[in-house]
């Protein structure tokens, strides 16, 4: 009964959004860009930065979890690799943030590839356990490889990004615009992937791996592709994180908890959706802040919320199926039109 009701509300909402998508996106986009000029406090800016950061991390894991259906409990490892690579290149070797960040993302992607090669032949819980181990191994390496990572002392004095001589900080809105840009690019990339041939293949693997194999899809190859893309996005987010943390990172910033936090964003928001990543991140980041006055109780309520969510809405808060008619790809449309034409000519 309840489902029906929400569906009834959803359809007009979706068609409304679809109808006015151009003015709406301009409006919302302009509003988001203008936020730092609207007198947002530093606390609000900081919260927004964390929401967008976790939305980006969520989108990274979503490529793996939402599209191919592989659970990773080791994404804090890729997050750490991106952060440390970028931090070491910018502090020790004097690289700029921009090149350092791309290098960080690439190293994370490379490690993702190497890890993916042998392990993605595993599936389900076995893969999950391997990723869990991966996260822990990264952490051990960060703690022990002192000559490179400075061990438990961490890396400090990581320079802030500069754009044509303008230093990006939290108070001048630079951090906010940077993550707004990064997460938007990520969202567009994810949207493109999802609606591409590769994206449909990934979803086919998720829905039924055996059927996908029988259709001639090389599942391991596509799973590795998803793993690499996922690691790249997460590594890029890590590089961004290394500069917003007051220029200081240490192994404790990448412990298992953070893998779980990223996973929660994806699951709470709605696996496989992009909108859900923003929503899940906003919910998980803001809940403890808004309910700070509850002191110790806030995490009890937070836990309760997650349990209720999984019980009554396992597809995630915004994990609805679209009610709009399926939009055919342009090529298919063209082919159909031609067939229609051929029919009428006959």
């Amino acid at each position: 009964m309840k489902e029906k009701k929400s569906l009834n509300l959803l359809a007009p909402f979706e068609s409304f959004v679809d109808k006015f998508k151009v003015p709406l996106s301009i409006l919302v986009g302009a509003f988001l860009i203008a936020v730092p000029f609207l007198g947002a406090s530093r606390v609000a800016m900081r919260n927004l930065v964390m929401i967008f950061l976790y939305a980006m991390l969520g989108m990274g894991l979503n490529v793996l979890l939402g599209y191919v259906g592989q659970v990773s409990l080791g994404h804090a490892g890729f997050y750490a690799i991106g952060a440390y690579t970028s931090a070491i290149l910018t502090t020790t070797y004097g690289w700029s943030f921009w090149t350092g960040a791309i290098a960080g993302a690439c190293v994370a992607a490379l490690i993702g590839f190497l890890l993916g090669l042998p392990t993605l032949r595993l599936s389900g819980t076995y893969l999950t356990i391997v990723t869990l181990g991966f996260g822990e191994i990264v952490l051990m390496v960060l703690r022990q490889w002192e000559s490179v990572t400075n061990g438990n002392y961490g890396i400090r004095s990581i320079p802030v990004p500069e754009l044509f001589g303008w230093e990006l900080t939290l108070s001048n809105g630079g951090f906010y615009w940077l993550i707004l840009f990064l997460s938007t690019v990520t969202a567009i990339a994810c949207y493109t992937i999802k609606n591409s041939n590769a994206g449909r293949t990934l979803i086919a693997i998720k829905e039924d791996e055996l059927a996908a194999t029988m259709m001639g899809i090389k599942t391991t190859r596509y799973k590795i592709l998803a793993f690499v893309v996922s690691a790249f996005i997460t590594g890029l987010a890590g590089a961004y994180y290394s500069v917003i943390n007051n220029g200081y990172i240490e192994p404790n910033n990448f412990v298992f908890n953070y893998s779980i936090q990223i996973l929660s964003v994806v699951i709470v928001g709605g696996m496989g959706t992009i909108r859900g990543m923003y929503f899940g991140s906003a919910l998980l980041m803001m809940f403890p802040q808004v309910f700070r006055f509850l002191n110790q109780w806030r995490f009890v309520i937070y836990g309760l919320l997650l349990v209720l969510m999984m019980q009554f809405r396992p597809q995630g808060a915004l994990g609805w199926q679209s009610t709009l008619p399926y939009k055919l790809p342009r090529r298919a449309k063209k082919a159909l039109a031609e067939r229609e034409k051929a029919k009428t000519v006959q």
Binding site: E14, V17, D18, K21, L24, S25, V28, G29, F31, L32, V35, L48, I51, A187, I188, Y191, T273, I274, R275, M277, Y278, F279, A282, M286, L318, S322, L324
Partner: peptide, 15 residues
């Protein structure tokens, strides 16, 4: 595109 839009809308509410 509609998904991106929905995201942006959700964001506005969140803000």
């Amino acid at each position: 595109m509609k998904k991106v839009l929905a995201v942006l809308l959700a964001l506005a509410m969140v803000f």
